[in-house]
Nucleic acid binder design. Structure first.
Lengths: 195, 195
DNA sequence: TACAACTCGAACACTACTGTTCAACTTACT
DNA sequence: AGTAAGTTGAACAGTAGTGTTCGAGTTGTA
């Protein structure tokens, strides 16, 4: 059986279309978490039937989009130098990945209602762990407060990134200002307050 | 014309049903932002037709639920003593309203896609202003940092409240721990970091 | 050039929701 | 006890989405 063609032996236009569809899916889902398949196909400049030719169901498409956006994020995280001073590292992390994370979390919201909960956690585990490590290291080195659990500090970072992205989308915040505001806030939050 | 019966002269069971429906709507919408009318009616222990007898459309129901949850929040905010030390006031605010705000923001998400954007802002303006005032006062009195805009500090509070509620829903955080974690984090975030 | 791979629109069946109507019933109130 | 007000399920029309099939057209590739 030479069945189940890999992406290698497919025709070039087919491969390109898959890419176009995934791109469109990510942008559409970022705008509207329950965008229809027709909408995504149209945004990709592709017929609806073609889309179904590549992804058997809407859920499969969303999963593929999530996988893609997460692996993009992984690539960025890997390229960063997170060694040395944890506070500097955190700043670098926020600065260079905040847009990416915002995009990812938008797709993640869409996936929340379309994928089995275990599947999401499974896909998201690896990149999340990298951030978690940085925070724990900062705690043991004394750079970050250790009177609050590391999981909560991680959560705080997530929520502020996501929230800032929302504010930008709603016109309450300038794109360019976001990284600085987030960094300032998170670093302060990671330091024990005087009260 | 003695038309347009107010809630005063309606039969008792009708008034009770309206209450039951609004309660059910709030809890259902908190669980799932696009809960169906059938689902809400069932949760209220009421026929679907009855529900439509009280609210002409799904959107009208959501608006009513939003109005109700916001006025509940208003009542709590009004009962609080937010004078004196801003840091203490903020702690009080978070402590005694965090559950309520989480509920409200869940319904708010549902309203986001069902109501015209202006309408939401209009309903939400009054309670939001009260919090905004506290933060601005804290800034001018030197209790909170003023190197970041007040609107952002407000946003931070919102996002952390909402985020914590999400964490509780996902089992990542204990209900009882939340207020303390939020207070500690927000107060630290509102203080200038050392870096 | 020839052929298989791919794309496309139209039409289909299916599901799930919203909102309406109706006729029968139960119940609150005087 | 009588009556208007309120509730109910069933059935309806309308809309919008998903996923499939088909036949005809287009295009990459060898």
């Amino acid at each position: 059986m030479s069945r189940s063609a890999t992406s290698q032996d497919r025709r070039a236009d087919a491969r390109q279309n898959v890419e176009k569809i995934l791109d469109a899916a990510i942008t559409c889902l970022s705008r509207n978490a329950d965008a229809s398949v027709s909408e995504i196909a149209q945004a990709a400049g592709v017929g609806r039937v073609t889309l179904y030719g590549h992804f058997p169901t809407r859920d499969a498409l969303i999963e593929a989009a999530l996988v893609r956006v997460i692996s993009e994020g992984e690539a960025v995280l890997e390229s960063l130098d997170l060694a040395g001073d944890p506070r500097r590292a955190l700043r670098v992390l926020i600065e260079s990945s905040w847009l990416l994370i915002a995009r990812a979390s938008a797709v993640l919201v869409a996936a929340q209602t379309a994928l089995p909960p275990g599947r999401i956690h499974q896909l998201h585990a690896e990149p999340a762990q990298r951030v978690d490590e940085l925070i724990r290291r900062g705690q043991t080195e004394g750079a970050f407060r250790d009177d609050l659990p590391a999981t909560w500090l991680t959560s705080v970072l997530h929520h502020l990134l996501k929230g800032a992205a929302l504010d930008v989308a709603n016109g309450l915040l300038e794109q360019a200002d976001a990284p600085r505001l987030i960094s300032e806030t998170v670093l302060a939050a990671y330091t024990r307050g005087d009260t």
